[in-house]
C-alpha cells in the first residue's frame, strides 16, 4: 500500500479532480484503507458541491442598474465617482471617529494607573497597567468594547439578530449561564446581534442595538460580578468614559453595562428599563 506517500495536497487535489489517473488510483487505494481520510474527503467533496451550487445560483441573479449600464456601455463614472466620494467621506469619518473615541476613552479614563472605590467607599488603589490585567473597571471595559465595535460597518456583531436563538444558545454556552438580549424596542432600539469578548475572568457578552438614525447602543454583560461587585451594590451607577456615557449595575450573578454616545438622560431611560429587566430575570 502506498498510503505513506499520499500527502494532504494529494487529498485536496483528489477532491478537485486534479490528479493524474495513476495518482488518482493510488489515492483511492489509500482511502479504501483509511476510513478516517475517506470520511474527510467525502465531506470535502459534498461541501464543494454545496458551495458550487450555492454560488452558481448567484450568477443567475438580476444585475443592479449600474452593472447593466456598464454592460450597455453607458458611462456612469461621473455619478459613481460622486457617490463614492460621499460614501468614502462618511466611511473615513467613521474610522476617524472610532480612533478619536478610543483615544478619548483611554486618556479620559486614565488607563495607565488608577484605583477604584468599592461599595464601602474604601479606596483600594489597585494599580492598573494599560490593558495588562483584568482589573479595568466594568464601565471602562464596556466603553472600550463599545467604541471598538459599534463603528464597525462590515461586522459589528458575530451573530446577527435574525439568528437570535443561535446567538442566545451560543453565548449562554460560552458564558456558562443563560444570557439573553434585553428588549429595547420600546425605545426604538432594535437588536443587531451580539458577540463574545474576552473579559478578565472569562467571556463577556456584548449585544448591539441601533435605532433608525443609526445610533448604536451596546449592552455588556459579564459574570465577573463577584470580583467587581461587592454584595449590596445594586442600583444604577453612571460613568462617563471619554465621549461614551455608561450606566452599569450588578444583579444576581451578572454585571451589566449600557454604553452609547447619546445623551445621559436619554441613555438613563433605556438603562432603567434594562435594569428592571435584569432584576426581573434574576429574581
Amino acid at each position: 500500500m502506498s498510503s505513506a506517500a499520499i500527502t494532504e495536497e494529494d487529498l485536496q487535489a483528489y477532491v478537485d479532480g486534479r490528479l493524474s489517473p495513476e495518482r488518482n488510483a493510488e489515492v483511492q487505494r489509500h482511502l479504501s484503507a483509511c476510513p478516517e481520510d475517506a470520511a474527510r474527503v467525502q465531506a470535502y467533496i459534498a461541501h464543494r458541491h454545496l458551495l458550487r451550487s450555492h454560488f452558481d445560483a448567484m450568477l443567475a441573479e438580476p444585475l443592479p442598474g449600474w452593472a447593466r449600464d456598464f454592460q450597455a456601455g453607458t458611462d456612469t463614472a461621473p455619478i459613481r465617482r460622486a457617490n463614492r466620494l460621499v460614501r468614502g467621506d462618511s466611511r473615513r469619518m467613521l474610522q476617524a471617529l472610532a480612533a478619536v473615541l478610543l483615544l478619548a476613552v483611554a486618556v479620559g479614563s486614565g488607563w495607565i494607573a488608577r484605583g477604584y472605590f468599592d461599595a464601602t467607599g474604601e479606596d483600594r488603589r489597585t494599580p492598573m497597567l494599560a490593558m495588562s490585567g483584568s482589573l479595568a473597571s466594568l464601565p471602562r471595559q464596556a466603553a472600550i468594547a463599545h467604541v471598538v465595535y459599534s463603528p464597525d460597518v462590515v461586522r459589528p456583531v458575530e451573530i446577527n439578530a435574525d439568528q437570535e436563538g443561535l446567538l442566545v444558545n451560543w453565548l449562554s454556552r460560552r458564558m456558562g449561564t443563560s444570557v439573553r438580549p434585553p428588549r429595547l424596542a420600546a425605545f426604538g432600539f432594535e437588536l443587531i446581534g451580539g458577540r463574545l469578548l474576552p473579559g478578565g475572568g472569562g467571556p463577556v457578552a456584548q449585544f448591539m442595538y441601533h435605532d433608525i438614525t443609526g445610533q448604536r447602543i451596546t449592552v455588556y454583560i459579564t459574570t465577573e460580578r463577584s470580583a467587581q461587585w461587592p454584595e449590596h451594590a445594586d442600583g444604577l451607577r453612571y460613568a462617563q468614559e471619554g465621549p461614551v456615557n455608561v450606566f452599569y449595575w450588578g444583579t444576581g450573578h451578572f454585571g451589566y453595562a449600557l454604553s452609547a454616545g447619546i445623551g445621559k438622560n436619554e441613555l438613563r431611560r433605556v438603562a432603567l428599563a434594562v435594569y428592571e429587566q435584569s432584576r426581573a430575570r434574576s429574581s
Partner: peptide, 28 residues
C-alpha cells in the same frame, strides 16, 4: 469585462458580507 460582472459580484460577496459594500468593491 462586462461578462465578468456577475462573477466579480459573487467574489466580492465572498470577501465582504454586506451586499452594498460588495457592490462598491465591484464598481471600484
Amino acid at each position: 469585462i462586462a461578462n465578468c460582472i456577475p462573477r466579480l459580484r459573487r467574489y466580492a460577496r465572498t470577501l465582504l458580507a454586506e451586499g452594498a459594500l460588495a457592490d462598491d468593491l465591484v464598481q471600484d
